[in-house]
């Protein structure tokens, strides 16, 4: 990439930055409206313990959604997320409960192995879809089954439990009412935001989502970037698995079923386009919060399970319709 190209790319991104901020503001307003509605209509919504609850419940989905944002930005999708989470969790659980290991060593090794397991599947997804040019929808549908089967095979379908007491306690720790696990997720949001908006790497990912051929002609190794996006998603899933274990003190091969759908929903509600090229991590953070606030608030309102499911579905449809309008505005 020569200097003139880079300049034109960055001036181009200035315009999109303004649009991104506007888009995020819209989602932020939606979230605030929801919060106001639930605060007025229910007794306990804005209590400190409930805020702690919501943040706890948002955390895993937020971490998965950060990874998913990278994949969707390049125009891909990762359906294997929930299964890979289960695989990473049972690998980490097995390591953590190895006899004769010092608890702190066990936790560190387990964390490393969860992330490694996630990266392994991310690499697999990325390499296969980028090398043969297969839609990631199909490839990750395959790895969804591979990872679930592997998780069941490793454990013989049994649940792993009784992790070190300190690890268990860490999972429910809070600082001024904010769960430590959520702070970890926020840190990942910050890293993701920086990578996507302040590095050439991030700008190229947007470029691939907008126009893959042009990005290739500009001299970028598109293959590398695609594999990288899926690998980042896999690593996020590995971290999500450790967070799951810290929060619930179990690891089982049947956890995480359907988590990919929640993550995709958070990313889409957060304003990232399923076609790739448009969207942001901050939007994803807001999207995950909207899903968490809805799930919590609708229970506090006393709505039935079935009504809750319908409303959450409608919100996703609404988000996609809004995205269509945004698309027209951007083109105009």
């Amino acid at each position: 990439m020569d200097a003139t190209e880079f300049n034109s790319a960055s001036t181009g991104s200035l315009g999109t930055t303004a649009k991104t901020v506007l888009r995020e503001a819209g989602i932020g307003i939606a979230l605030i409206v929801l919060i106001i509605v639930f605060s007025l209509s229910t007794q306990h919504f804005l209590t400190s313990s409930n805020v702690t609850n919501i943040l706890t419940q948002v955390t895993i989905n937020l971490v998965l959604s950060i990874g998913m944002t990278f994949v969707i930005l390049i125009g891909g999708i990762d359906l294997s997320v929930g299964s890979v989470l289960a695989f990473a969790a049972v690998v980490a659980g097995t390591v953590m409960t190895l006899p004769g290991l010092d608890p702190s060593v066990a936790v560190m090794l387990a964390t490393a192995s969860a992330v490694a397991a996630g990266i392994l599947f991310g690499l697999l997804n990325g390499l296969v879809s980028a090398w043969w040019g297969i839609p990631s929808f199909i490839v990750t549908l395959g790895t969804l089954n591979v990872a679930r089967g592997a998780a069941l095979q490793v454990t013989g379908a049994s649940t792993i439990y009784s992790f070190p007491a300190a690890f268990n306690a860490f999972g429910s720790q809070t600082i001024y009412g904010v769960p430590v696990l959520f702070l970890i997720a926020l840190l990942l949001v910050a890293v993701g935001w920086f990578v996507l908006t302040r590095t050439v790497f991030g700008r190229v990912l947007y470029g691939i989502g907008n126009n893959e051929e042009a990005t290739r002609l500009a001299g970028h190794n598109v293959f590398f970037y695609k594999v990288a996006a899926f690998t980042i998603c896999g690593a996020a899933v590995g971290i999500g698995a450790i967070i799951y274990m810290a929060r619930l003190n179990i690891a089982s091969p049947i956890i995480g079923i359907g988590f990919e759908l929640n993550a995709i929903a958070a990313v889409i509600i957060g304003g990232t386009s399923l076609n790739g090229g448009r969207g942001s991590i901050i939007g994803t953070l807001l999207g995950a919060c909207i899903i968490g606030v809805l799930a919590n608030g609708l229970i506090l309102l006393g709505l039935s399970d079935f009504m809750r499911q319908m409303i959450t579905g409608f919100v996703i449809i609404l988000a996609v319709i809004l995205d269509k309008y945004r698309e027209r505005l951007t083109k105009a």
């Binding site: 229910t42 007794q43 306990h44 209590t47 313990s49 409930n50 609850n53 706890t56 419940q57 895993i60 799951y244 929060r247 619930l248 179990i250 089982s252 956890i255 079923i257 799930a295 919590n296 229970i299 506090l300 006393g302």
Partner: peptide, 18 residues
Amino acid sequence: WETEEANSVFANMFTANP
């Protein structure tokens, strides 16, 4: 039937009915 969902759902029910 799920652990994580039960954890969230119960926490929310408990908030509504302490």
